[in-house]
Amino acid sequence: MSNSDKQHSKHIVTGGIPLKQAQKVLVMIHGRGGTAEDILSLATHLAVQDFALLAPQATNHTWYPYSFMAPEEANEPWLSSALSLLKDIVADLVAQGISEERIYFMGFSQGACLTLEFVTRNATRYGGVVALTGGLIGEKIGLQNYQGDFKGTPVFIGTSNPDMHVPVERVYATANILRDKNAAVTEKVYNGMGHTINQDEIDQANRLVFQSEV
């Protein structure tokens, strides 16, 4: 595999209202094998009509090659590259006058894992976080990696029990770590839902995260 395949280029697909007009921004992170366009299509179901939408595209359609519960070093350097890309996106937005309190994140599956890992390593008061079927990354959760304070950031985590990729125990452990860092976490487990997104998750995201100021 070439070095270029081990790094994620800054290829971002946009949607919603133009960034220069936006008061709020939603960063949408696709799952393994998915595309930026796939995850952007979810926005039609979300209460984000006044948001700018940014969806980065993973190189070769995957953020890291192995399970999110593989030893962390097995997923390097792809994982660090993906985390750096998200950090760059946030820094770019802040430089354009969008404060972190007005930046929101949403991810599905591998994208949910990456979302949770990024925000917990860089905890601050974000607009909100939606993680659909995901948990913190690593064979064991590395508490030493997590810095900062969420200061009440609303977080919704939805998952199936069972799920073929994400054990429910990891979801509960993740939710508790975010709570310890002062996130306002709601996790909801759907029995036998399968590896997908359901309408109730969309409703919860809209109520708890995207309309949190209403």
Rank of each mutant, 00 (worst) to 15 (best):
K181S: 11
G142V: 10
L53F: 09
N206C: 07
P65H: 13
G142N: 09
L46K: 04
M69V: 12
V90I: 14
I202R: 10
P162A: 07
A91F: 06
V27Q: 08
G194W: 03
I29R: 01
N145C: 15
S41D: 15
D163F: 02
S212V: 14
L136Y: 02
S109F: 01
Q21V: 05
V155D: 04
Q23P: 04
S2D: 05
Q7V: 14
T35N: 05
L178E: 06
W78M: 06
G148F: 07
A70W: 05
T44H: 12
V130A: 05
A91R: 10
I157G: 05
N75A: 10
H11Y: 15
I17V: 09
R102G: 05
N75G: 07
S67E: 03
T124L: 15
Q211D: 13
V185C: 07
L54H: 01
T62H: 02
Y126G: 03
K10G: 15
G158S: 07
G135A: 06
V129Y: 02
M106T: 06
V189K: 10
V168I: 15
L93C: 12
H195G: 05
M106G: 04
M164Q: 14
A123R: 03
V27E: 08
Y66E: 11
V27N: 04
D38G: 13
G158K: 06
Q204V: 15
G134S: 05
D38V: 11
Y172N: 04
E117K: 14
S212N: 10
N191C: 14
H11M: 13
S67Y: 05
L116M: 11
N122I: 13
F105I: 01
H165P: 03
H195A: 05
P154G: 05
D38Y: 10
Y66L: 11
K181V: 09
V209L: 09
K87P: 11
F51I: 03
A91P: 00
Q199S: 15
A173P: 00
G127Q: 02
S160D: 06
I29N: 01
A184E: 10
V94S: 15
V166M: 04
L86P: 09
E73L: 06
L53S: 05
E73H: 11
Y146G: 06
V25K: 01
H11I: 12
A58S: 10
A22S: 05
D200T: 15
P71A: 09
A22H: 00
L93V: 12
G152S: 15
S41N: 15
L114P: 00
F210D: 00
S41I: 12
H45V: 10
S41E: 15
Q147D: 12
Y126R: 09
L114G: 02
Q110E: 03
T159F: 07
A112N: 01
S4K: 14
Q7P: 07
T120N: 09
H165I: 08
G135H: 01
F210W: 04
P65D: 10
G107E: 00
A47V: 04
L208Q: 12
N3A: 09
Y64D: 00
P71E: 06
L42G: 13
V130D: 01
M1T: 09
V189R: 08
Y66R: 14
S212Q: 06
E76C: 08
L178V: 13
A70F: 07
A184R: 13
T115A: 10
M1L: 12
A131D: 09
V185Q: 03
M1W: 08
Q211E: 15
